[in-house]
Nucleic acid binder design. Structure first.
Length: 272
DNA sequence: AGATTCGCCTGAGAGC
DNA sequence: TGCTCTCAGGCGAATC
């Protein structure tokens, strides 16, 4: 499940093969993704040069010469692989970008929660990005910021952290890990956060995500980078997926509670 | 407005 | 073997 570190890993893997390259052809085999792929997309992209590959939260942004953009989101199960030849597509290989260099960028997504969206240059902001909160590594993302935004909120801290309007990039895995590092219980109402705890939480979010980027993300089932390489952060996970196992810090049995239909593993002793 | 639930999807695993 | 059920979850939309 690609969260910020996985998307960043893919971006870094793709960039050297994409940036400066011309898109020769686009093949859409299955347009029914999160939103229907614009039938005009192949036309829009053919013959265009990719100027840069950026990231905003969990979105990849391909900027083309002239300022038009292509927005991609991997949803739950999306993968992008670089192939040195356009091999026979397999089940769930929904979309290909064929580059003039001979490389093929192939999108694979069994659950089809992902998206590929055309974003014309004339449109200054994209509606999916306009309401997003700061990047976790942005200097504005601080304890003071988290403290201010959490005032008056009653929802659980975990849901608060996973809200992209508060901060981007934190999905179920990294929200759970950050809360463990900060010693905060996932169910705690966000508004009850003290100023000091807000500092700890902001630091924990930054640290967890930064470390995960260094490790190349978390490979639990099938996440892989652009070249098929796996991530290593799963070896660092302290709570996610460890229900019933002992806390690495105090030995207590880790508990799982369901918050808004999502698994939330925590240590009942270390997290208050 | 904030909080909560739903819906979109398929694959893996459990249980029978 | 094969069926049914549950769970996984990003995130926008709908509802309370």
């Amino acid at each position: 499940m690609p969260e910020l570190p996985e998307v960043e890993t893919i971006r870094r893997g793709l960039a050297p093969a994409c940036v400066g390259q011309t898109i020769q052809e686009v093949r859409v085999r299955e347009p029914r993704l999160r939103w229907l792929v614009d039938p005009g997309l192949p036309q829009h992209l053919a013959g265009r040069r990719i100027e840069s590959l950026g990231r905003r939260g969990k979105y990849l942004i391909f900027t083309l010469e002239g300022g038009d953009r292509l927005l991609a989101h991997l949803g739950m199960s999306g993968r992008i692989r670089l192939l040195d030849a356009p091999l026979e597509p397999q089940l769930h290989d929904h979309l290909d970008l064929l580059l003039a260099s001979g490389w093929t960028l192939r999108y694979h997504d069994p659950r089809r929660f992902g998206a590929w969206l055309w974003w014309p240059a004339g449109q200054a902001t994209h509606p999916l990005l306009s309401a997003l909160g700061p990047e976790p590594f942005d200097p504005v993302f601080t304890g003071a910021y988290l403290y201010r935004r959490s005032r008056g909120r009653t929802l659980p801290l975990k849901a608060f952290l996973m809200d992209g309007k508060i901060v981007v990039g934190c999905g179920n895995i990294y929200a759970a890990e950050a809360l463990y590092r900060a010693g905060l219980r996932p169910s705690r109402p966000a508004g009850k956060l003290s100023r000091k705890e807000a500092d700890r939480l902001a630091q924990a979010v930054r640290d967890v995500l930064a470390e995960a980027v260094v490790q190349g993300g978390t490979t639990l089932r099938d996440f892989a980078g652009a070249h098929g390489e796996v991530g290593y952060f799963q070896q660092v996970l302290k709570v996610y997926g460890r229900e019933g196992q002992p806390c690495h810090r105090c030995g207590s049995t880790l508990q799982n509670l369901r918050l808004g239909n999502r698994a939330s593993v925590y240590c009942p002793r270390c997290q208050r």
